[in-house]
Every structure is written in structure tokens, then in C-alpha cells.
């Protein structure tokens, strides 16, 4: 099969050990050269789907292939980079920004992970690209929310992977940094990268995402943004979108309101 830099998720189900069903029969295709947004409520399985695509967890059924390859082979070829959610990182760990970004290069190094001049140059370029060169010697916990994101983004850049997965890249990030990250993602798309992000920031999706996948325990819809990212679809995904709920609440009396909150 030719390498297309797409991701195929074929009928995946994941049950956690506490027998909570996180995903069932999820199938979707991430189009090469696109920016695709993964959208769904908390606990709807976004992170589970990401972890399945990255091979961090083993689905009970189904399979994933990346650019026509099994996950592990694609990873060995440095095809996929993963930018973790902030709460997955141990920010007290004694490493500097430079160290973290250099970790993006380990897959290219020999067994002893001795950086070549090319590795150092790419780390520098990646840091410069996200405007983090001034902070390269900082311990990672000494960064602001936006700087933390940029540091891990730089690691993904240093890895030179053509497919990038970003889990909640805009959480805890100010508007300026969000815009900078979006610009970077658009540049990457133009140079042929495939990008999959999960996000809560519904407002910005239609401004830069070509495609949307709606997820709540399973894939509810996927396709071009203008076709899929509709109010009805969002209502279906989130079980009533916030704006409508607020209007309804305004007309309700107090008692009902309390019971609704309790139920939530």
C-alpha cells in the first residue's frame, strides 16, 4: 500500500479494567494533508481514541493503521508525533525545555542517544519556530501554560513526523498563544502534514479545521467541517448544546433547575 499519511480506525472498542466501556465500534478515517478536529463531551472517549491510535492502549477489538502501516511500524519510521495533554506530564521532573525537545530526536539517534549536530540544529530550529529559544534552559515546571504547550509542540516538530496528534492543545492557553498554535498548524498543513487535534474550543474549529469527527462513545459523524459541524450534530453529540440549555433554564422555575444540576 502506498504511503498516504492518513489514519484508518477500523471498528475499535475499548473497555477499561473497571469494565467501563469507553469506546465501541468506532471507525473513522483521518484524511491526509488535513487538519481534523476530534470533538465530543468529556468522557466521550477522545483521549481513549488518541491512545488507541498511538498504541498506548490495546483495544479489545478492531485495529488502527497509520499511513497503511501497523502502528508500531509507523512509529519506528517516525511518522507520528504526539503532543500530550498538560495533565499527563510530570511538570516537576528535573528536565529542561531543551532536554524535552531533544527527546523528539531519540528515534533518529544510535543506541546511546548521542545527539549529532543535525539533532542539535533541529532542536534549535524547532524551539525558534515556537518562539521558545529564550526559555530553553528552564525547568519545564517553570513555564506558563502556553509555554508548556509550545515546548511539547517543539518536541513534535523536532521529531519531523508527518502526522501529528495534539490532545487538547488549547487548554490553559491564552488567546495569543492559541492563535500562534493555529498559525503553526496551518503552516504544517501547507507543507503536507496530517493533523488531528482534540479540542473543547468549538468557536475556533470552523476557522482552521478542514474536517471534524464527532465522538461520544462511538463516531457519530465525520467529514468536512461545513457538512458535519452543524448545530443538530453538536446537539446530538453533546446531548443538547449549551446555548439551547441556557435558554430553557431561563424559563424554568428554581426547583427544576436544582434537580437538573443534581442530575448532571
Amino acid at each position: 500500500m502506498t504511503q498516504t499519511l492518513g489514519i484508518t480506525v477500523d471498528n475499535i472498542s475499548v473497555t477499561y479494567s473497571n469494565s467501563r466501556l469507553a469506546l465501541y465500534n468506532a471507525s473513522c478515517y483521518v484524511q491526509p494533508g488535513s487538519i481534523t478536529a476530534l470533538v465530543g463531551p468529556n468522557g466521550g472517549g477522545k483521549s481513549t481514541l488518541f491512545k488507541s491510535i498511538m498504541g498506548f492502549l490495546e483495544p479489545n477489538q478492531g485495529q488502527v493503521d497509520i499511513s497503511g502501516l501497523p502502528i508500531h511500524k509507523a512509529q519506528k519510521k517516525q511518522l507520528v508525533a504526539y503532543v500530550p495533554q498538560a495533565d499527563e506530564v510530570d511538570w516537576n521532573f528535573p528536565v529542561s525545555v531543551w532536554d524535552v525537545v531533544m527527546m523528539g530526536r531519540y528515534g533518529y539517534m544510535n543506541l546511546f542517544r548521542i545527539p549529532s549536530s543535525k539533532d542539535r540544529r533541529l532542536v534549535k530550529e524547532s524551539l525558534t519556530r515556537v518562539d521558545m529559544m529564550d526559555f530553553k534552559d528552564r525547568q519545564i515546571g517553570e513555564l506558563s501554560g502556553g509555554q508548556k504547550k509550545r515546548a511539547f509542540l517543539a518536541r513534535a516538530l523536532a521529531q519531523e513526523a508527518k502526522i501529528m496528534l495534539l490532545d487538547e492543545p488549547f487548554t490553559g492557553v491564552d488567546v495569543k498563544t492559541e492563535k500562534a498554535i493555529i498559525d503553526l498548524l496551518l503552516q504544517l498543513k501547507d507543507s503536507g502534514h496530517t493533523i488531528l487535534i482534540s479540542t473543547h474550543d468549538l468557536a475556533s474549529i470552523s476557522t482552521f479545521c478542514d474536517r471534524v469527527i464527532l465522538l461520544n462513545q462511538t463516531i457519530l459523524a465525520s467529514g468536512k467541517t461545513e457538512a458535519v459541524f452543524t448545530e443538530e450534530n453538536l446537539a446530538m453529540t453533546f446531548g443538547g448544546i449549551p446555548t439551547i440549555r441556557n435558554e430553557e433554564r431561563g424559563t424554568r422555575n428554581k426547583e427544576e433547575k436544582i434537580s437538573t444540576i443534581g442530575f448532571d
Binding site: 498506548f56 512509529q75 507520528v80 504526539y82 521532573f93 527527546m103 546511546f112 542517544r113
Partner: peptide, 22 residues
């Protein structure tokens, strides 16, 4: 001594280690 960088990566971010095929 020989594996110190991999061991440190493993302690810090095993998911990234996996993502780069280690």
C-alpha cells in the same frame, strides 16, 4: 551509564518513548 537517556525518558514520558518507536 549506557542506557541512561532511555531510562530517563522512560521515567519521564513512556508514551513519548512509544510514539517514537522505542
Amino acid at each position: 551509564l549506557l542506557r541512561r537517556k532511555d531510562l530517563l525518558l522512560f521515567c519521564f514520558d513512556p508514551n513519548h518513548a512509544k510514539a517514537i518507536g522505542l
